[in-house]
């Protein structure tokens, strides 16, 4: 029988949140700035082109997807950078030495990743909302997909961080796995524009459902049925959490 170390988990969560708040440049300024760049490029340079098969202009279509992409990337960055930094500096041993169960550690890390993702999304959307005709049409869907996506990516970041031995390993995962998957998940296009084969490949990308569901929450239209995708997403969330829990429990690539 072990008592729950709620204070320990809470402390880890607040440490993770305070850590990303200390690098405001990455967490607040960068998303605000990229939002403005997207605005200039896609709205003013590309004009008001319509998305084929949808009654929205390209920029309106683009914004929710971009917000979601920022959330996913930031959730991943938060856990992976914390883990690799801890390993390189040697601080990760305190997580192993402290009376924290795997589930407490995983919950704290994932909660902090979700908070960071939400902060980034809010900053990003706050900058763009005045320039785009978007509403919080289905807030429940928006939150569901936003939070589930952040948990999945936070979990993948945690696993990548556990796996990595140096900063370069993380950069590799980010560049060769996370970036392509997020870019090829229908942020910049509707899959209906794609040839049949590519449509099917897209349907195998879990990020596609996340982004499409999130966007549906704003536009009320999308490539998939956001309610049907919920099951897929929840299963993925569950599997991610289970994987994190099990890997932490055995001290994967951390305890020799």
């Amino acid at each position: 029988m072990r008592p729950i170390n709620a204070l320990g988990a809470w402390t880890l969560f607040t440490r993770e949140v305070r850590r990303f708040l200390k690098v405001k440049m990455q967490t607040i300024v960068t998303p605000a700035l990229t939002a403005m760049l997207y605005l200039i490029i896609f709205r003013y340079a590309m004009g008001e082109r319509q998305v084929p098969g949808m009654a929205v202009d390209y920029f309106t279509f683009l914004v929710p997807g971009l917000a979601m992409m920022a959330m996913l990337q930031n959730a991943f960055a938060n856990t992976s950078s914390s883990m690799i930094m801890g390993k390189v500096m040697g601080m990760h041993i305190y997580l192993l030495m402290a009376p924290l169960s795997a589930i407490e550690v995983v919950a704290a890390f994932l909660a902090a990743a979700v908070v960071r993702a939400l902060v980034v999304a809010c900053v990003f959307l706050a900058v763009l909302f005045p320039f785009v005709d978007l509403q919080l049409l289905h807030l429940g869907l928006i939150l569901f997909y936003g939070i589930c996506g952040s948990i999945i990516m936070g979990g993948l970041g945690l696993i990548a961080g556990m796996w990595s031995k140096e900063f370069d390993n993380i950069a590799m995962v980010t560049n060769f796995v996370i970036l392509p998957l997020t870019f090829l998940s229908g942020v910049f296009y509707s899959v209906k524009q794609l040839p049949e084969l590519w449509q099917q490949i897209n349907h195998a990308n879990p990020f596609f459902y996340l982004i499409d569901g999130f966007r549906y929450g704003f536009l009320g239209t999308g490539d998939t049925d956001p309610y049907a995708s919920m099951l897929v997403v929840m299963t993925t969330v569950l599997l991610t959490i289970l994987a994190c829990w099990q890997l932490w429990r055995i001290g994967w690539r951390m305890k020799e």
Binding site: T11, L12, R15, M85, G90, M91, A98
Partner: peptide, 24 residues
């Protein structure tokens, strides 16, 4: 521990408060 470890984001006082919290 034998190897020096440190948390580059925080001050010694913060580090000690965190460590205390982690240990419940």
């Amino acid at each position: 521990p034998q190897e020096v470890a440190f948390d580059p984001f925080f001050t010694p006082r913060e580090v000690l408060a965190f460590t205390s919290g982690l240990f419940g």
